[in-house]
Measured scan of single mutants.
Amino acid sequence: MDSLVVLVLCLSCLLLLSLWRQSSGRGKLPPGPTPLPVIGNILQIGIKDISKSLTNLSKVYGPVFTLYFGLKPIVVLHGYEAVKEALIDLGEEFSGRGIFPLAERANRGFGIVFSNGKKWKEIRRFSLMTLRNFGMGKRSIEDRVQEEARCLVEELRKTKASPCDPTFILGCAPCNVICSIIFHKRFDYKDQQFLNLMEKLNENIKILSSPWIQICNNFSPIIDYFPGTHNKLLKNVAFMKSYILEKVKEHQESMDMNNPQDFIDCFLMKMEKEKHNQPSEFTIESLENTAVDLFGAGTETTSTTLRYALLLLLKHPEVTAKVQEEIERVIGRNRSPCMQDRSHMPYTDAVVHEVQRYIDLLPTSLPHAVTCDIKFRNYLIPKGTTILISLTSVLHDNKEFPNPEMFDPHHFLDEGGNFKKSKYFMPFSAGKRICVGEALAGMELFLFLTSILQNFNLKSLVDPKNLDTTPVVNGFASVPPFYQLCFIPV
């Protein structure tokens, strides 16, 4: 009986604490739906499609509103004006990374994606500088992407125009580009180590996009005490870190300090320079996690976009025909596509942009946080508050993009057929937390897609009208449904 009384008292205290925290903070924060004790607004949000729920709530509470995930307040920004004001106009104040408990377990605050403060700034600055020195957006990395595009075309030829699921092959190409940047090595598509790495990356994007992960991140005790797919994700990350550590040891034994070959060499050189400046942010643990982040951000996002792009091109054969006509006119058949071609191919450029806009790969991006107490639109948001960005509300804005739910390359073309930029184009987020590999991803999408369409016609196994382009999961990332196609050599 005594234990029951204690339990009831504990629960009562928890409920009172929950109510007090919510009521004391709500006077400062933007308005929002009334949260339930302990669980907050979790029942009012469709976990399978958070973005749709945010759109519905914005119609009631406006472009800036507050939700509670458990006891934790989260300020939501919906629509271009609110997102721009926060991420661009007040970029420094909104540059923090929001709480992501599962990532905390995986990387302990290291790396480039989930770190904060001085650690994040130094690692991000170093990573950007190193990638630029190796030619991100310049010639040397373009050579690597072109080489991988040629290998991709050869792998597709091996399908002999038979029906195939493109998931694996389209994942190999961007993964190999990242391998060449980090390890100075590309792998054969049949290499077992490479296959294991690909498998872990593919599993992780599916797990991260599941409703279960949303629950884990908002009720963090689940991570330590409950079984579930989150444990598989943590094991996959541990596998990748151990693999990278092996490569780091190989580099330490063979590195030429006067001739760095890749990202690992550059990081080890930085560690050597910083060894007298303790404590340094440049450690082996930081290198492991930064490399894992580059793999995660640079492989599955690009391969998922490529997979979605081919599905949309199957669905819209008239678009595919126009792209192939432009390829034939500008590039021809006797040389590989290059980035200089893009400025002469406005329709193809528009298609690449429209694919990214339409699929809305990361509907709410990753959570941000404010780095200080900030007054925002007459609300006071306390330091450390998590900020949720609705990228969907920007990419699918119906004023900027008429009929935003329709796939239409003319969203990025003017009346004369010239490519038209849009400030609403934010597939990689915006501001200080914009994806480090934005330029690389854009290069890969253009070169891989043009190389495929230069060499193959795409054949659907069903009537294009019957192809479903609805994402199968739409949590962290929008993942396309399973499909097969035939690559018919031109």
Rank of each mutant, 00 (worst) to 15 (best):
L29S: 03
E272D: 12
F226I: 11
A86R: 01
S115L: 05
F482E: 15
T371S: 11
L268G: 04
E203C: 06
K383N: 07
S140T: 10
S286E: 12
G442N: 15
H368S: 11
T385D: 00
T301L: 13
G40Q: 01
K206P: 04
E328P: 00
H411F: 02
V370Y: 12
K399W: 10
A350K: 01
L388F: 11
E328T: 11
K52T: 09
K241V: 04
P337M: 03
S3Y: 11
L445K: 02
M255L: 12
E93C: 09
M345N: 01
F226M: 11
E281Q: 08
C216G: 11
V64R: 01
A86L: 05
I39D: 01
S140K: 07
L71G: 12
I50Y: 14
L102R: 09
W20T: 03
K190C: 06
G91Y: 04
V370A: 12
I169L: 13
K241T: 05
I45K: 01
F126A: 05
F69S: 09
I181A: 04
P363T: 08
M269H: 15
L43K: 06
V351G: 00
C216F: 13
V5W: 14
F134P: 09
W20R: 08
N217V: 06
F482P: 15
E92I: 06
Q484A: 04
D143R: 07
M198V: 15
Q340I: 08
F267E: 04
E281D: 14
S140L: 06
F126Q: 03
P37S: 05
R186A: 02
L11H: 01
M136G: 12
K273M: 13
V145E: 00
N457T: 09
F376R: 01
K185M: 06
I488M: 12
K241N: 12
Y358G: 01
P35D: 01
L77M: 08
L36M: 10
T229E: 13
G32Y: 00
C13Y: 03
H410N: 12
Y225A: 11
F187H: 07
L11Y: 04
S53L: 07
C175A: 12
I112T: 11
M426L: 10
S242A: 13
D165T: 05
K138Y: 08
G27K: 10
G62P: 01
V490S: 11
E122S: 14
T66V: 03
N466M: 09
V64A: 08
F487T: 00
E328R: 13
K200A: 14
N398C: 15
M269L: 12
L453T: 03
E281P: 13
D165F: 00
P227T: 14
K275V: 09
E93S: 13
H411K: 03
G96A: 15
E274L: 08
F65S: 03
K247Q: 15
L395W: 08
F65R: 00
L7I: 09
R125T: 09
Q340G: 08
L314I: 10
P174A: 10
S422H: 07
F401G: 04
M406T: 14
E93D: 09
T470A: 15
L195D: 04
K72A: 04
I264V: 10
Q484R: 13
L395C: 06
Q278T: 14
E155I: 04
D165W: 01
Q356H: 11
F428S: 04
P211R: 10
V8A: 12
